[in-house]
Design a protein around this nucleic acid. Structure first.
Length: 488
RNA sequence: GGCCCCGUGGUCUAGUGGCCUAGGACGUCGCCCUCUCAAGGCGAAGACACGGAUUCGAAUUCCGUCGGGGCUACCA
């Protein structure tokens, strides 16, 4: 894209501290970071906590943690500081207050004493009559005396900005020229009755003071932009460039929500997704490289990123595709690396995986079989416990092979395996294959019985490797257990 | 209701007037490989929301309709 200014690029992500990092926030943060890296700029993280009630330090940490886990790094922020500190709106109240008094002094803003009830009634009436709801501006002409009276009476007051009575225009980086006639908007609140600034106001002050050059945010803010432009205009400030990103949607095309599945980064982590897979998936949801390439690491994304190929239509969050990405990344990991990632999931499932070599040997069997880390305990659990529940029911299945045949097969397998001196893949396989042939069974049918006997499952890692890992004694022990279970 | 944004297979998308009998990926289905399940290989089905207009020619331009979404707060 062409830079319209020679200034250093400065972009930002401004999450509100909700305790969790939303995927939408993460993706917007990603695009901003990629843009900054691409153009050698700075990426700022600012906490937008003008909603004092909901904001705590802990809820802020949740958001940062989610972003960090994904590998999103910021150059300036509440945790790392920076030349434009503080980076929490809560700590910038005096700054907003100064700007408000300037606006008040110049007559571009005024106190409004209307009660919420009055305003509600007006809004409702307007809607019913089919008029756009718009503040009447009745407090705009209050005299100093009238205001003094109201203040003395203890009336609550907010500050409203006089909306410019004209059409405001800006060029959206994705959507081109945008217009809005502010006359139909009316004067809007910039300071609440509790003295705290409204988002649309605070964000302008911050963007300006932090010298933000480009604002990439979700389309839901597109209309807000005009309120913000009004503030820039009133203060005589030069607005940054805006680009409004698409939304992520539920499968039913509504805005992505908890109801339809996971939406917080922490949840994806717990579900066994790799951060690099999530990032890759998110990046391609709303942007494309213009080529057929689909797999990108962070550096690759920076290289390929461009504003031109950011898409304009909303995208459904398709978790099936995320699963595929996750599988791709799992398969690309080295065995030791995958073992490291799998470890906490095994532990949480109650397995003792302190034997690193054993864990790695086990993991090596399932790299091609895992789509999510959470699947590991199910697939590998039998290798890390002595307590495998095998019953006659475990063998229920194919009608063509009856219980007596299974019992017989296992007894023969037991006999044959006992003869195997070097407990390795080759000899084990040879003995079982020979047995199958002698019995006139398909090898798969025989192996399935052994498989069930030692794992209790029909779907498992490859059998010979599993037997090797289990060891001769334990393997025979389990087969014996299975025989016993089938005998009564 | 008003204002605004968006509209290519089930999903993410390529496509910027002829290269399109609309390409890729996920998913789905079939086949191969195979000790189960995967992974991998090969193949198939499947889309330009609709209607007008412009043009020799439209997925691509314009208008309208329809559909989805957003904003219209003392939420962000």
């Amino acid at each position: 894209m062409s830079m319209t200014t020679t200034d250093t690029v400065r972009v930002r992500i401004a999450p509100s501290p909700t305790g969790n990092c939303h995927v939408g926030t993460a993706r917007t943060a990603l695009y901003n970071m990629l843009f900054a890296r691409k153009y050698g700029g700075k990426f700022v993280l600012r906490i937008d906590d003008t909603d004092l009630q909901r904001s705590t330090k802990e809820s802020e940490e949740g958001v940062l943690e989610g972003l960090r886990w994904l590998g999103i790094k910021w150059d300036e922020g509440p945790d790392v500081g920076g030349p434009y500190a503080p980076y929490r709106q809560m700590e910038r109240h005096h700054t907003y207050r100064e700007v408000v008094s300037q606006l008040l002094a110049s007559g571009q803003a005024y106190y409004c004493y209307c009660t919420p009830e009055e305003l509600d009634a007006e809004r409702k009436a307007a809607m019913e009559e089919g008029r756009p709801p718009r503040y009447s501006g009745k407090c705009a002409h209050l005299t100093a005396e009238q205001r003094a009276e109201l203040d003395a009476a203890g009336a609550k007051r907010v500050v409203r900005l006089r909306a410019p009575q004209e059409t405001l225009t800006f060029v959206d980086l994705l959507r081109g020229e945008q217009h809005k006639d502010m006359a139909e908007r009316g004067d809007f609140v910039i300071v609440k009755s509790d003295g705290s600034p409204v988002y649309n106001f605070a964000t302008v002050v911050d963007e300006h003071l932090m010298e933000i050059t480009h604002v990439f945010r979700a389309v839901e803010h597109l209309t807000n932009t005009f309120d913000q432009l009004s503030v820039y205009k009133a203060m005589g400030w030069k607005p940054p460039q805006f680009g409004h990103l698409t939304l992520m949607l539920n499968p039913d095309r509504t805005k992505i929500s908890k109801r339809a599945g996971a939406v917080y980064i922490g949840e994806f982590r717990e579900m066994g997704y790799l951060p690099e897979a999530l990032i890759n998936f998110l990046a391609l949801l709303g942007w494309n490289p213009g080529t057929d390439q689909e797999i990108f690491d962070m550096d690759g994304l920076v290289q390929a990123f461009s504003v031109e190929t950011l898409s304009k239509s909303d995208a459904i969050f398709d978790i099936k595709k995320l699963d595929w990405f996750n599988g791709v990344y799992i398969r690309s990991l080295s065995v030791p690396e995958l073992a490291l990632r799998v470890k906490p999931f095994m532990e949480r499932a109650g397995f003792d995986v302190s034997d690193e070599a054993r864990l790695e040997a086990a993991v090596a069997l399932v790299t091609d079989r895992l789509n999510k880390l959470t699947e590991a305990p199910d697939m590998l659990g039998f290798l890390f416990t002595k307590d495998v529940a095998i019953s006659a029911e475990s063998f229920a299945g194919k009608a063509k092979i009856g219980p007596e045949q299974i019992l017989d097969a296992l007894k023969q397998a037991d006999g044959v395996l006992r003869q195997v001196d070097t407990w390795e893949h080759g000899p084990i396989e040879a003995s079982l294959r020979a047995l199958a042939e002698a019995m006139g069974w398909k090898i798969g049918d025989l192996l399935m019985q052994v498989r069930i006997a030692i794992t209790g499952r029909r779907v498992t890692p490859p059998l010979f490797e599993s037997l090797v890992l289990l060891g001769k004694d334990e393997s025979l022990r389990r087969i014996g257990l299975a025989i016993a279970a089938l005998e009564h």
